[in-house]
């Protein structure tokens, strides 16, 4: 689905990604993990069309930067870590998700998708509230609903649950998992290793801008790749949950 071939990227003279290659599976939840400054967000920015890079990123068989922006928006969505607190209402924000599809006016089908996305995220009661009037967790949910309304095949998120409390984060990730079950591909940079291992199907581990591990969650746990790179210990609880300390 998404094939990264030897990409490199830099901020000015400081190179942050070095010849990184990876493949992200269709209909999979892929967690990108790594220490702070390892290049996780930069990698997502390259795929999202925000950051220039050398090398190739193929979406299907097409180089991603060559796909016209509106067409690409129907194939791939990207939610950055810092989400703006605007004066727009929740409904207006979610409606923005249909932008790649709307020529002049929203159709009935667009409206249905918007309503469904809002319902999925459980924020129907906040529809007419401005983003300035709701909590941080609710705001994240509003942006998730916008992403769902965008209905792209690949959903990319950069540390989406960083500012959320545990119940909001669980709900957020459950919704993403459900999208994967419905055939979407989710790629998320995650800082909570326990959450990542719980929800992800595949793991990509980056260290110092280089790929360290790529494969299924099971293989990652077996090889203790996370423990090595992140210098943490893992413990398996009675219910099978793996936690990292």
């Amino acid at each position: 689905m998404l094939k990264i071939e030897k990409i490199s990227a830099a901020y000015g003279k400081k190179q942050v990604i070095f010849d990184l290659s990876a493949e992200l599976g269709k209909g999979r939840f892929t967690a990108i993990l790594g220490r702070n400054g390892s290049g996780k967000s930069s990698l997502l920015s390259c795929i999202g069309g925000i950051k220039d890079y050398s090398g190739k990123i193929l979406l299907g068989k097409r180089e991603i930067s060559a796909i016209p922006s509106r067409e690409r928006a129907k194939m791939l969505s990207y939610l950055p870590q810092n989400l703006p607190i605007t004066q727009f209402t929740v409904l207006e924000t979610v409606t923005f998700g249909r932008e790649p599809y709307v020529s002049f006016k929203l159709t009935e089908a667009d409206r249905e998708i918007i309503e469904r996305s809002i319902e999925k995220c459980g924020i129907s009661h906040l529809k007419n509230k401005k983003l300035t009037e709701i909590s941080g967790g609710e705001r994240q949910m509003a942006y998730l609903a916008m992403t769902l309304a965008q209905d792209a095949d690949v959903i990319m998120l950069d540390e989406p649950t960083t500012y959320m409390d545990a119940p909001h984060a669980r709900k957020f990730l459950d919704i993403l998992k459900k999208s994967v079950d419905e055939g979407k591909s989710v790629v998320a940079v995650m800082h909570d290793l326990t959450q990542a291992v719980k929800y992800a199907d595949d793991i990509i581990l980056i260290d110092g801008g280089r790929l360290v591990f790529e494969g299924t969650k099971e293989k990652c746990l077996e090889e203790k790749a996370i423990e090595t790179v992140m210098e943490v210990e893992s413990h398996t609880l009675e219910d099978g949950t793996v936690v990292f300390i």
Partner: peptide
Amino acid sequence: ARRINLLALGAPIATSLGVN
């Protein structure tokens, strides 16, 4: 105007929504 609205969401989100 519709595209200008998206600028308020910041360049990353606006780009993701298909705005150059």
